[in-house]
Each structure stands twice: as C-alpha cells, then as structure tokens.
Design a protein around this nucleic acid. Structure first.
Lengths: 339, 339
DNA sequence: ATGAAAGCGCTAACAT
DNA sequence: ATGTTAGCGCTTTCAT
C-alpha cells in the first residue's frame, strides 16, 4: 500500500510547518501569497487529497448519509433510493447504501458499523426479521446517541422519529372499491404476514372496504406469503381452491405470478379477472398485459425522507419534534383493469 | 448531538488510565481480572462502542469494501451485489454500495470520497459516460495510491487490474448459432452504442456468427439504443421497417419491449419469432411468455470479484500480478425459443 | 506571516 | 498490573 500524501509530508518537503500547509490549502490570508502559491502548486502536482477519515474525526461531520434497505431487487426500494440520491446530492451529501437482506442481524451490523463515525444520519426501511422480532433497540440507541434517523415505508410506532409513508389502508380501499364499482365481488388478496407493517395495513384496508360494502370477508380469499420460494405453488393452489373475479397483490412480483397463473388457467384478464398491484415498477409496466398499479411515488418518498434527514442534520436545536409525512398515491389503470 | 461514550470518559469515571481501559476491553491479560471485569461491566452498562473512524485512522484498515454500480434498477447488478455481499460478509467485510447513475462525475465523486480513508478497496462496473469519455484517471489514481480495485462486466483494457467478466462474444455466438440451427436467418440484434464494452463485444459476436454461417450482416437489423426514454418508439420503428424471425437483446428490458411489440403486431412467439436476452432476472422469468436468456451467473461474478479483492487486501506482497476471470454462461431456454 | 501545540478516539511500544 | 507517550491526519487557537 503506497501511502497517500499528507500535510506532514508536504510540510517537510517544502520546509514549512504543517499548519502553514493546512492554512495555505484553505487559501487563508494569514499566509503570504507566495507561500500559498508554492504550497498549492505542490499539492496539486502531487495530487494531494485530504484524508476524509481524519477530517471526520475532527469535525464529527461526514456529509454522507446511509440508506438501509431490505433488498435491492425490488423496484420500489430502487426508486426510493433514486429520490434520496437526487435530493442528497443537490444538498452536497453523499449517499451510501447498505442491504439488510431482510435480516435483523445484518441490519444491526450495518447500522452499528456506520453509526460509529462514518456517516451523519440514516434513512431506513425495516427488514422483515426486525419487524417480526419487534426489536428496535439498535435504532433507538442510535437515535439516543443523537444521530438522526428517518424511517420510510416499513416503519414502526415504537420508534419515535421522522417517517415517510403512504396511506396503505386508504390506497388499498381505493383499489378494492374500484373492483366493487365494477361489480366484482370475489376479490382475492395476496399479501405478506401481518408482522410486516405495510402488509398488515393493506390487509386491513381490504377488509374494511369489503365490510363497508356489505361483503363478508372470507379468510380463504386472503393469501399471506411468508416464504417467497414457494410463491408459484402457493398461488397455483390459491387458484385451485378458489374462484376470483378480481385480485389485489401487495407487490408487483406477487401480481405477475397471479397473472401468469390466471392466464395459464385460461382465465381472461381483464375480462374475467381484474388485477391491481402495489409498486409501479418495471414488472408492472412491461408485463403482458401490463399491470394496473397503486403508484406509490417512491421517488418522491425518497426525496422527502432525504429532506427530513438533512433538515435535522443542519438544524442546531435539539430536535424534540418529529413528523410523519404521508405521500399521496394514485390508482394507475393499465391493461389488467378496465377503465 | 449527544456524544458517544469514549475510552477517555470511562477512564476518568473509573479513575484509571485510558490505556488500561483499552487493554481491559480487549481482554488483555496485562490487566488484573478485577479491573478488567469492572471496566467491561461499566462499558457494557453504558453501551460503549468503539469509534470506527478513530480505529480506521489508526489501523489504516476499515474492513469494508465499496461497490460502485451504474444503476440499481437492473437485476444483473442487483445479483452481482448479492454475490459480493455473500462472500464479503463471510470474510468479515462489510459492503457499501454507491451509484454512479451512469454519470462520470458521480462515479468520480463517490470514488474519491470513499478512497480517502473510508474503505479498503473497490469493486466497480463502469458508468456509460465513463466508457464514452474513456477517461479512467480516477481509477488509475486510486490504484496508484495502492488501493485495490476489481472491475466487473463493464471493464476497460486501459486499466490494469483484476477483472471479472463473461465471454460476451462467445455467449452471443452461442445464442445466434442456436437461432441459425433452428433455421432462423433474419436475426435482429438490439444493443447499446459501441462505446459500452459489453454492447460492442456482443455485437461483435453477433456479426461473427452470421459471417461464419455465410449470412450477410445487414446493419439495418442492428439497433443501437442510446437513450432509453425512446425505447418503445425505436423498437416499434425497428419492427415497422424490418422483418425478423429471431431477435437477440443485450438486456432483459430491451427484450421484454421487443416481446410486447411483437405480440402487439400479431407476431407469434416463439413460432414466428425467437427471442433471447442477456440477464436472467425477474423480467425474463416472469414475463408472459417467459424469456429465454443467456444466464450470466451474476451472483457468481460477484463472489469472484469479492474474492479477488479480499485476496489482494490480505496479501502482504506488492501485487504486481493481475488476473481476469471469465465466468461461464449458459443458454437458458424458456418460452421464447423452442428447444 | 508563520509555527507550536492541543485535541479528535484509539492503539501499542515502552516505562514504571 | 498499570500508566505514559507517541502517533494516525487534520484543524484551530494561540503564540511568536
């Protein structure tokens, strides 16, 4: 490992003191122009780069924020990240991404690693395992140490901090109500186990809407998928045992599997089966037929999360006050619904 | 910002020296068991966490590696990252991800930020803009400073370092040869501009195969897509002006667009049109019909890249020797080809 | 105009 | 068994 050029070396080489070099490079007018020029030229020539680590130690500021997401192969998270990057870069912040891979342990490890010095704040969406365990110690601790954390999408009431979410109940109600308005009554709902916050809320929205319309909730029409490796068989089985005229899925992967299964069984979409998914990503847009979705404005969510975080970072006062921003959603009709 | 507990504070609180605390926490037997216990108990109680920044400054080691990728909404990159994470985590390394967003400037900014202290090494796939500009100064510089860099997929001969690639020419030849073996002659090829290394190589493989089989290369049948926002119109136009019995696309997004266009035009797939794509991701798997692909073993590529990097990091000797690992590919038949 | 020195949090060689 | 000290690279206050 060749070592990086340091102030010390420059100082020695040019036979001045370290502090003179430091000041000269900052263009301080404490230093004569001649010396300044000489030092700057030298630094440039040998491509001096200040050591960020040393700077962070000193300043306790890194101008970088970290995003912790459960998985990367998911357009919703990818788009949120784009939003975060967009706003953060504009404000002069760099963005680091870490994956929890839906694992509690990796979430903790990554956060602890970063929390101790490397970054100024977090944007996080909880891993499945964390939500299942309901153990939020690591996050509370980080907040207690004074590091700002903004949560998005998969959040929890148990941590008091800024949050960015959509109204999952409402968004689902809107979709289900649409099905009903089209005369659909046998509405299937494919979701996650209830310990995942958004899955639970969406299921709640589904049930509420049926009840509000005087339709009995049939638990058989709700499929909760725990283990994605069994997606295909579970959905196939779901169709084997039930009959639907509409299905809603909590993400686009589940939705496209439904679509495949339905078509394979000779069910016509959208004529015989209406389908709406959460997450307006590449799958929904490009599937054939393309899938109608609840547009979550993921990019905007990312921007808001970044804005909230940076505001906290740059405000002096103790931040006793936290807010939850609810981003609006939109029902986007494509080829799996009739408009 | 409440401050983190430091060795100094513990030392003061317990009325011992800082180094005693440091040693005690490392369970050094230089320290009496009594003192050790006392200090460890205190540290635990107040939840002491060593400051990574300080450690890095000291050790010049961070045990974390950074991955720089052009974009996140792309299964190939997502899967490579999984592979990297897998191997890195096993070896006790953390992984940080940064996006270049296909921009030269962001690639440079991110790398420079990280290079100066925050990480031990890089795994990178070049951004489009970097490949177009052919400006690799930032990477060469980092390597010169003694920081190991491993490149994957979008690489360049101009930087001498470890690389992980597939044999793009060969993989394409295999696919095109398959088309030909099925009697297909009007073979379209949808690719990127030639400045993108993998696009160029794949185009080369396409042409070579045709020539080897005595088929004239018709440049009209090659569509180079620069600007993805025009994907739909360009492909539509491509089909308007030409007739195909087979098409190969350099990624799954292009492929699914081809599929949509073909079906919309009443072309039967795979009967009238064979289709093969690079990238074996969610789109190919879930499209209807599902798309036959060149499986790039992205996960494995990630693992190899991480392994190469970590080997360099942990070997003492000056690493004068670099290798390029070529990962095997596989033609995966699904519903857009007949087997 | 320039430099010395302290300090950020930690480790480790070297006292005591 | 415990402590002192120097040093990692940098900034900044306080001399000179």
């Amino acid at each position: 490992m060749k070592k990086n050029l340091t102030l010390k070396q420059i100082a020695k080489e040019l036979d001045v003191s370290i502090s003179t070099v430091s000041k000269a490079l900052k263009n301080s007018d404490e230093i004569s122009e001649a010396t300044r020029n000489k030092i700057q030229a030298f630094a440039k020539l040998y491509n001096y780069k200040p050591n960020n680590i040393a700077l962070s130690l000193k300043n306790r500021k890194t101008k970088t924020i970290a995003v912790i997401i459960p998985e990367i192969v998911h357009d919703f998270f990818a788009m949120v990240i784009s939003g975060i990057e967009n706003l953060a870069n504009q404000s002069g912040y760099n963005v680091l991404i870490c994956l929890s891979n839906e694992s509690y342990e990796r979430e903790v490890i990554n956060m602890e690693m970063l929390a101790s010095g490397s970054i100024d704040g977090f944007v996080i969406s909880l891993s499945k395992e964390t939500q299942a365990k309901k153990d939020y110690h690591h996050i509370k601790e980080i907040i207690n140490q004074g590091m700002p954390v903004v949560m998005f999408d998969r959040v929890t009431r148990e941590v008091y901090t800024d949050k960015v979410i959509i109204d999952d109940v409402l968004a689902t109600q809107e979709a289900i109500q649409y099905f009903i308005s089209k005369g659909r009554k046998k509405i299937g709902f494919i979701t996650t186990p209830d310990y995942i916050s958004v899955g639970r809320l969406r299921t709640e929205g589904y049930k509420k809407t049926l009840e509000a319309n005087g339709i009995d909730v049939n638990e058989n029409l709700i499929l909760r998928i725990e283990d994605e490796s069994q997606l295909d068989t579970m959905i196939d089985d779901f169709f084997e045992k039930n009959e639907f005229d509409a299905v809603m899925a909590v993400n686009e992967l589940y939705a496209v599997k439904v679509l495949r299964t339905a078509l394979k069984r000779g069910i016509k979409v959208p004529e015989d089966l209406h389908l709406i998914a959460f997450t307006d990503g590449v799958i929904s847009k490009n599937s054939i037929p393309s899938i109608s979705t609840v547009k979550q404005n993921a990019f905007k969510m990312g921007e808001i999360a970044a804005r909230l975080l940076i505001q906290k970072l740059e405000s002096e006062n103790e931040h006793e006050h936290y807010i939850t921003e609810v981003v609006g959603t939109e029902l986007l009709h494509r080829e799996t619904t009739t408009f």
